[in-house]
Design a binder for these strands. Structure first.
Length: 597
RNA sequence: GCCCCCGUAGCUCAGGCGGAUAGAGCAACCGCCUCCUAAGCGGUAGGUCACAGGUUCGAAUCCUGUCGGGGGCGCCA
């Protein structure tokens, strides 16, 4: 967790003083855990140190709170210190602190809320998410991982880490051959079997490939002569296309030449991957790395090298002609096969090689997986352990799935039916911001019902608009001020000491929290923390706007007018700062902050 | 058979690494635009935090069990 001194100089100072007081009182060292009291009347910030010290010190927390206060060198900005409840120490800050905040927010601009980490604390984090198989279009569920993974990556970046967004492309194995067959059969108007992929996107890809490569691509002869070459047996040991797959279905569909299926499969996968990339881009998600299993792990020899290394480390062993990884010694239920007795590596072997590769490029690995992959966690963690990667450096988060509904009725998403509603169509229907925000404001542990009818119909009541509206409203205010020629002057000259109205102070307090919220949300990888905070911040602005007249009214008497002008200047700059804070919060969620609505 | 997630207001969900009177939005009801965007604001009403034990000075939060709901693995990739 980022410490307060890296977020806010005043809080950092207070944090240090509380620590000093704890030392002076000869109490065990503990994090002051500065937080904002739930009830504003309790103060601006509070330390819970006494509560947490109660157990180790075996003393009454209120007594400890008093001890801490007795030893505390109270900074000037703190106007009032009080002990309350079971042992909270509350601090009330002078108005000066809040007024300085306006300057700090405006000066830091887009950087307000972001923080740095010391070099020894900064991590290179590899965030892998989505990674859906490129054998079909993305469905809504993938949209959840896209929005969440992207926002978590952004949060980590804002918290001072170096982040790489990565998509693992499963472009090797059995499924590529099946995908190739599916395209060929679709293109040539033949019936598909149960195992084949189908749907609108496949038809489009088939058409696309025909246009680029001609009918010959799907032709058996062409496959024999030009495309298959040494891989006539259907197994291509060089690029891994036909190596993988747990099924012992070396055969394949008799109507499609294996070489043609392989060739078309590779082309088709790339075409589909491109479509996925396009949809994700529409979602505002752009990956840094598209990692090809076929090229990066098979063609490069990384899989073989990884298996060799595991054998060398003594973590893998040969039995019954196959090679097993001893995952049971790291908490898995049973040992997993790396290389089958026929010599083909398993998909799991690819995962091991991929993990090893990522570990060479990063020092923190984050995997965002859907609940349908939760059975995979144990073996992946075991694989990490076998490869010598410390367990705390591999994070595997499981998110619950998304149910797509329309008017309360489930929308079919089965792959066999082929006809589903894709993410692309959902984005068309309700818009990017709604989709993203809907996913981001809910925790990963909650299964989400995404009802198209509800989301579309109630779009005006969607919380994302509540936040965006606050931003647009401030912009409108600024625009109006300009149109009326309101002289707001320079921020440095603004009479911020006039900001004493409760609504103003609440807005200021809310703004002050952004850096801590960001740090906490990043630490917990919890996008909903930031989303809920954004709603709270928007709420404090709306109340301020309702209760406090910002631009002077035209009807005021001359003597009152001068006063109103002064107050207006202070409030104008407060609004400018609030707009920045809102824009930053939305920006970290990568949700659009509109200038007008 | 095993595993994961959830159960908090009528609905959808925050809060959950123990701490102050349990929060928000929607829905309901009552108010607020001669005035900077009413996509807003204020108020009222609405809760055995599923249930039962346990740990603790203190439990919505941690542990165990039960019930209810969702999903996964054991078939594929």
């Amino acid at each position: 967790m980022a410490r307060p001194d890296q977020l806010d100089p005043v809080l950092g100072d207070l944090d240090a003083r509380v620590r000093a007081a704890i030392r002076a009182a000869q109490l065990p060292e503990t994090d002051p855990g500065l937080e904002k009291p739930k009830q504003p009347e309790h103060g601006d910030w509070a330390t819970t140190a006494a509560l947490r010290l109660a157990k180790p010190a075996a003393r009454n927390p209120r007594e400890l709170a008093q001890l801490i206060v007795d030893h505390l060198d109270v900074p000037d900005v703190v106007e009032e210190v009080s002990i309350a409840g079971p042992g909270f120490v509350n601090f009330r800050f002078a108005h000066r602190y809040h007024q300085d905040l306006v300057r700090r927010v405006v000066e830091r601009g887009a950087a307000y809320g972001r923080s740095r980490k010391r070099d020894d604390e900064r991590r290179r984090v590899n965030v892998e998410f989505v990674s859906a198989n490129p054998t079909g279009p993305l469905h809504v569920g993938a949209g959840r991982w896209a929005a969440t993974g992207d926002a978590i990556a952004e949060l980590l970046d804002a918290a001072g880490d170096e982040v790489v967004r990565e998509y693992y492309v499963n472009d090797a194995g059995e499924q590529v051959r099946i995908f190739g067959e599916s395209i060929v059969l679709t293109a040539t108007g033949q019936d598909l079997d149960d195992e084949h992929y189908r749907g609108q996107a496949i038809r489009e890809v088939a058409t696309e490939l025909r246009e680029h490569h001609g009918d010959g691509l799907f032709d058996r002869q062409a496959g024999d002569d030009d495309l298959v070459g040494s891989e006539a047996g259907g197994i291509d040991h060089d690029d891994g296309v036909l190596r993988d797959g747990d099924a012992d279905t070396a055969a394949g569909d008799a109507r499609v030449h294996p070489g043609v299926a392989a060739r078309v499969g590779v082309l088709g996968v790339e075409a589909m991957r491109q479509r996925i990339e396009d949809v994700l881009h529409r979602m505002g998600v752009d990956f840094d790395v598209w990692y090809s299993e076929r090229e990066g792990l098979h063609a490069s020899g990384a899989v073989d090298a990884t298996v060799a290394e595991l054998l060398e480390r003594g973590e893998a062993y040969d039995a019954d002609g196959a090679t097993f990884l001893r995952t049971t010694s790291h908490g898995d239920d049973k040992d997993r096969v790396l290389v089958r007795s026929d010599g083909r590596p398993t998909y799991f072997a690819s995962d091991c090689a991929y993990l090893r590769d990522k570990w060479s490029r990063a020092d923190q690995l984050y995997y965002l997986l859907g609940a349908d992959h939760h059975g995979y966690v144990a073996r992946l963690k075991a694989a990490a352990a076998c490869l010598g990667v410390p367990p705390d450096r591999v994070e595997i988060r499981i998110g619950q799935l998304v149910n797509l509904l329309r008017d309360g009725e489930p929308v079919r998403m089965s792959k066999r039916a082929g006809e589903t509603i894709d993410l692309d169509e959902v984005v068309d229907e309700v818009g990017v911001d709604v989709v993203r925000y809907h996913f981001l404001r809910q925790g990963l542990d909650t299964a989400i019902d995404f009802d198209l009818a509800v989301v579309a119909r109630q779009s005006m009541d969607n919380p994302v608009y509540y936040v965006q509206y606050a931003h647009a409203r401030i912009n409108s205010l600024i625009r109006t001020a300009d149109e009326r020629g309101f002289e707001h002057g320079e921020l440095a000259d603004a009479p911020l000491e006039l900001l004493t109205h409760p609504a103003e102070l609440e807005l200021l307090t809310a703004m002050a929290q952004l850096p801590l919220v960001v740090a906490e949300a990043a630490e917990l990888r919890a996008t909903q923390r930031l989303a809920r905070y954004a709603e709270e911040l928007a709420g404090t602005f709306h109340r301020f706007y309702t209760e406090c007249r910002i631009l002077p009214g035209a009807d005021a008497a001359a003597d009152e007018r001068a006063e109103a002008e002064q107050l207006g200047r202070a409030r104008y700059w407060l609004a400018v700062a609030a707009k920045q804070a809102l824009a930053n919060a939305l920006g970290l969620l990568r949700v659009h902050a509109p200038e007008r609505m």
